[in-house]
């Protein structure tokens, strides 16, 4: 990895780690860090991989920089949704819909087989706390565990059908 690649990799990690920050602050932080790297390299008078590596090491891990920034952000503006809009902290915490969704997916599965988890899925998609990606992952988990036993059941029935 040459020097420029090291810088690109570092800025890429910073970008990836900075998702909890508001979009404008994220861009500002990336720009500040890039300027800081350029200034340090100009001061060093060299751009070889070892110098760049040392500069990046002095800066610290991107995740640590973002954590420091996130702590400085007011809680209400810390999180953004998948469209980059700021969300108040209250929207990101537990509410009646979230608790009901979790209960229906777990206890509801025993009290109301099939109907309980189905209602839980509806509440999951109505909730504004989880992002669309998180909702998709949860839905996929449910579907995969639903589908696998059904395929197994069909296979058993198919075998019984051909066996008799």
């Amino acid at each position: 990895m040459d020097g420029d690649e090291l810088v690109r990799d570092y800025l890429g990690r910073l970008e990836a780690a900075s998702w909890p920050l508001p979009p404008d602050r994220r861009a500002e932080l990336a720009s500040e860090v890039r300027e800081h790297i350029e200034a340090a390299l100009a001061e060093a008078g060299r751009r070889d991989p070892v110098t760049i590596h040392n500069v990046l090491e002095r800066l610290g891990r991107p995740e640590e920089i973002v954590a420091t920034e996130a702590d400085a952000e007011p809680l209400a503006t810390r999180f953004t949704d998948e469209l980059g809009r700021r969300m108040p902290a209250s929207v990101r915490s537990w509410g009646a819909i979230e608790i009901a969704a979790i209960l229906l997916l777990t206890v509801g599965a025993f009290a109301l087989p099939l109907v309980g988890p189905a209602m839980g899925m509806v509440l999951l998609w109505l909730s504004k706390v989880w992002t669309t990606r998180e909702k998709l992952v949860a839905t996929l988990i449910v579907l995969i565990i639903f589908v696998l036993p059904i395929i197994g059941l069909l296979a058993v029935e198919g075998r019984a059908g051909t066996g008799s």
Binding site: R92, S93, F110, G120, E134, T139, V142, P149, L153, A155
Partner: peptide, 30 residues
């Protein structure tokens, strides 16, 4: 696969999803 096993697995499908959703919320609040 035994039919009783399938009947047991179907209600359990929501539990891993619920665990995932709880973990997401707990990690976000830290």
């Amino acid at each position: 696969m035994d039919f009783d096993v399938v009947r047991l697995l179907i209600p359990l499908a929501g539990i891993p999803a619920a665990i995932f959703l709880i973990v997401v919320l707990v990690r976000r609040r830290r």
